[in-house]
Amino acid sequence: MLLGDSGVGKTCFLVRFKDGAFLSGTFIATVGIDFRNKIVAVDGVKVKLQIWDTAGQERFRSVTHAYYRDAQDIYIYIYLITGYAFCDTDRAWLTEIHEYAQQDVVIMLLGNKADMNNERVIKQEEGEKLAREYGVPFMETSAKTGVNVELAFLAVAKELKHRAGRQPNEPKFRIHDYIESQKKKTSCCGFL
């Protein structure tokens, strides 16, 4: 389930992953929640991702809440690196996910619009700090260039695959470590 304030690029993020395209032009607010499927291959196994793209506007909060527990335990919270500094809204979102969702959830924190480095307001370190505070994996992404988009969903797919068919001896899939090892840095030094 993709969550975050209105206009941070949740739909663009999803469309980049699903269709490999960038939705440019005028902003079109998602109405309610939008349900889409995508099948990805993880280590030779097909994983069907059912993705909820939610509307960020306040008036849709109740319908989003109703589906918290139905989303298969993975929440992706997106903020904008070019937006305002972290504030109570972002913390409220993360706390809310913990509250509404079940215990065994995975939350991922993403800072979108990493391509707009010169308009950056929130430093990468600040994102990392917030992620540590909530104990969630973090990376910066760009729906425009596609950086780290595939990785976010792939990590989700791997997590799900491991949950579904983990052998007793097999080590637990560590989504944190996986993302840390795979993610592309998007900090001030530019793209790698």
Binding site: I28, V31, G32, D34, F35, R36, F60, V63
Partner: peptide
């Protein structure tokens, strides 16, 4: 509502909507 947004064209959308002439005090879900 449908003609105003291209966001419905893909996937399945689920949204609260009040039909004011039917009942202006409650939401249906479309």
């Amino acid at each position: 509502l449908i003609s105003s947004s291209t966001s419905f064209r893909e996937g399945e959308a689920w949204t609260p909507i009040c039909l004011p002439k039917f009942n202006c005090n409650g939401f249906f879900h479309a």
